[in-house]
Nucleic acid binder design. Structure first.
Length: 665
DNA sequence: TTTGGTGACTTTTTT
DNA sequence: AGTCACCAAA
């Protein structure tokens, strides 16, 4: 997208939006004061008067003592106070610059008892996830969906029963639904068996080939009675759930045709949509929802053209609004944009600043009677945060207040530990540590419940796997002749066994693979190959097992342990717990030896040299980390970039109650 | 007082 | 990824 064409909140908009006279004088004054300093409005700026006169209520800026959670409490206080003074929830709107924060505030307010009109991302809503998890059970041989705590009466199972069934399904079951149709494993409790029998009844006549809409309708209406429960509840939360499910069912019905099992196709499509953020239009509420008495939540962009008696704007912090400019992914070439002579960022940065100003102007001018801005003064870990520079531009009539929250609400209830009892002292590999670091919950699903399936692989990933296989084999065989022909033959062999052998774009992948393998050999730099080794060391409560890829021998006789990575070097990886463990293992188990990490994709070698003090610090760091695993701390790390690719995408959420025993050795 | 290192936080919107 | 806040050392 070229600068200047970014979106339609531009200078023309000021003309359209400014001459609104519905706002009270205080509000008009505030946004006129702000606009006066905007380059787009020129030197004069809109000088408007309100048709409705003053309300006697100044525009307020509330600095909240505390973090985002405290800000949420301040919002609740505000909204309730206004409600008590006669402003219905439906007359209040809350505007944010981004959907991300908006959905956090949405769930936060809802948790604090404020009715909210906002669905957020449809596929992340619990009631929709419940349906998706259920649907996944029809197609998933390994029944991962059982690992989600169900709200359907009669289907609830304890964590230990779920663990037993999942293990059974993993080892014995050949087809989806066998876990409830075949004989259950003996460890399953009586209650668990009753639940399995209920499952059997509910899935009667359904299977992997079923039509998803029909299967869901059966669950919702007929056999589990979810719809009836929601319909009979009158509260706003239930109505929002009803709307979400209605929205979801309409989406399910309108699926494009194609081959293959329809449930699988639906689920693949949902992953795609979320990955590409193409699920946005599903967030729009149907007209039927408009009468609901709930606070309106929307993005500032989405609020354009609307107006509300009361407007709340949280998050007025430095670097949040205005957001700091970012380098364009593809800068315009010199001369393409008028006024630039270089590849500099001055034009895009200016455009960005103006855009942010327009956006804020729009948000301000949505308010008719009351306008309240908020900013927390701390980050979650207690560091101070500054208010947005926009605040200073709202004129002298702006009322500054400090809000002190007397009893900070239980902010996003701390993730309760999941009941896991490790039998004996667990041994953790560096790969397991790495997974826990990326997402503790995924570690739980994959290594504790062993419910994981494989990620869907791509050609690119397959190519990396071939490289991995070849370099592993070369490392395992120090006497391997490293001449070109021998390496090519080895690569050929792995290549022909992979999916790459039959793809049209094979050539490019093969060149990349050859280059990486060649670098692997070169990166030994004349040092003699040596066998890989497994290093171990203990931290309180666990043993860490580090698999090194190879150990080369220097001319002087010193050994260098090497971790071979097929990907690119990244800061997060170099600082990761996995490489942390690698460095510690070499320092402890093989004193005097060196450690290095090889990144084949960008042909670099990073030495991991640690001074004793740094090493000790990392050991502490790692111990604290391991404690999390042992204590059952498996919080979800939600991300729209990585979650859609996770095997647990459809089931991630509340875990069944109870405890599970685990042997992680 | 300045500087460097570190850690951690927040992170695009729309048709 | 980029930036801010904090801390420690110069």
């Amino acid at each position: 997208m070229l600068p200047g064409k970014s979106f339609d909140l531009n200078r023309a908009m000021l003309k359209d939006e400014a001459p609104r006279k519905r706002s009270r004088k205080e509000i008009v004054d505030a946004y006129c004061a702000f606009a006066a300093a905007m380059p787009v409005s020129g030197s004069t700026g809109p000088d408007l008067d309100s048709d409705r006169g003053p309300s006697g209520e100044p525009v307020e800026f509330r600095t909240v003592r505390g973090d985002n959670g405290a800000e949420m409490d301040a919002l609740v206080t505000s909204i309730e106070a206004l409600k008590d003074s006669g402003r219905a929830y439906r007359d209040q709107a809350l505007l944010c610059s981004g959907n991300d924060r908006l959905s956090k505030i949405g769930t936060g307010l809802e948790a604090r008892g404020i009715p909210v009109l906002y669905l957020g991302s449809l596929f992340e809503r619990p009631e929709v996830r419940d349906l998706l998890a259920w649907l996944s059970l029809l197609v998933d041989r390994r029944a991962m969906g059982l690992a989600r705590r169900t709200t359907v009466p009669g289907l609830a199972m304890s964590l230990s029963d779920v663990g037993a069934v999942l293990t059974h399904a993993k080892n014995q079951m050949a087809a989806p639904l066998d876990w409830c149709r075949g004989a259950p494993p003996p460890e399953v409790s009586q209650d668990g068996n009753a639940a399995l029998a209920n499952y059997r009844r509910i899935v009667e006549g359904l299977g992997p080939e079923s039509d998803p809409w029909t299967a869901l309708a059966i669950l919702l209406l007929d056999r589990a009675g979810i719809a009836a429960r929601i319909a009979s509840a009158a509260d706003v939360t239930s109505r929002a759930q009803g709307i979400a499910i209605w929205q979801f069912m309409n989406f399910v019905r309108a699926q494009p045709g194609g081959g293959g099992p329809r449930i699988r196709r639906l689920m693949d499509r949902i992953r795609q949509l979320v990955l590409l953020s193409d699920d946005r239009d599903l967030r729009n509420l149907p007209d039927a929802a408009n009468g609901i008495d709930a606070v309106r939540l929307m993005t500032m962009h989405g609020s354009k053209g609307l107006e509300f008696p009361v407007v709340h704007i949280p998050g007025m912090n430095l670097n949040t609004l205005p957001r700091s400019p970012q380098a364009p992914a593809c800068p315009p070439p010199a001369g393409l944009v008028e006024g630039t002579t270089s590849w500099g960022r001055e034009v895009t940065d200016r455009e960005h600043r103006e855009e942010q100003e327009c956006l804020f102007y729009v948000a301000l001018s949505r308010a008719e009677d009351h306008l309240i801005l908020y900013a927390p003064d701390r980050t979650a870990n207690g560091k101070s945060r500054q208010p947005s520079p926009f605040i200073a531009r709202l004129g002298s009539a702006l009322l500054h207040t400090d809000v002190v929250i007397a009893h900070p609400g239980s902010d996003e209830q701390p993730d309760l530990p999941i009941g896991v009892d490790f039998r004996g002292e667990p041994a953790l590999t560096q790969a397991q540590l790495a997974l826990y670091e990326r997402c503790p919950r995924r570690f739980f699903y994959t290594h504790v419940l062993e419910a994981g399936g494989r990620r869907t692989s791509t050609l690119f990933m397959d190519m990396h796997e071939v490289v991995r296989a070849v370099t592993d084999q070369l490392a395992a065989d120090p006497l391997h002749p490293l001449d070109q022909a021998a390496i090519a033959a080895l690569t050929d062999q792995h290549w022909s066994e992979s999916t790459l052998a039959t793809t049209p774009a094979e050539e490019g992948y093969r060149q990349a693979a050859d280059a990486m393998i060649a670098y692997f050999v070169r990166s030994r730099q004349g040092r003699a190959a040596g066998p890989a080794e497994e290093l171990r060391f203990d931290v309180p409560g666990a043993t860490i097992v580090v698999k090194t890829n190879e150990a080369v021998v220097e001319p002087g006789g010193g050994r260098v342990f090497r971790d071979i990575r097929t990907g690119h070097r990244s800061d997060t990886l170099v600082k990761s717990k996995a490489l942390n463990a690698f460095a510690i293992a070499v320092g402890r188990a093989a004193p005097g030896c060196r450690a290095e990490v090889v990144f084949l994709s960008d042909e670099t070698v990073v030495p991991l040299q640690l001074k004793p003090a740094a090493l000790a610090k990392r050991v502490d760091d790692l111990s604290a980390f391991v404690t999390g695993i042992l204590k059952g701390r498996y919080p979800q790390r939600v991300s729209s970039r990585t979650c859609p690719n996770c095997p647990a995408f459809f089931i991630c959420g509340p875990v069944p109650p109870g405890r599970v025993e685990k042997n992680l050795r």
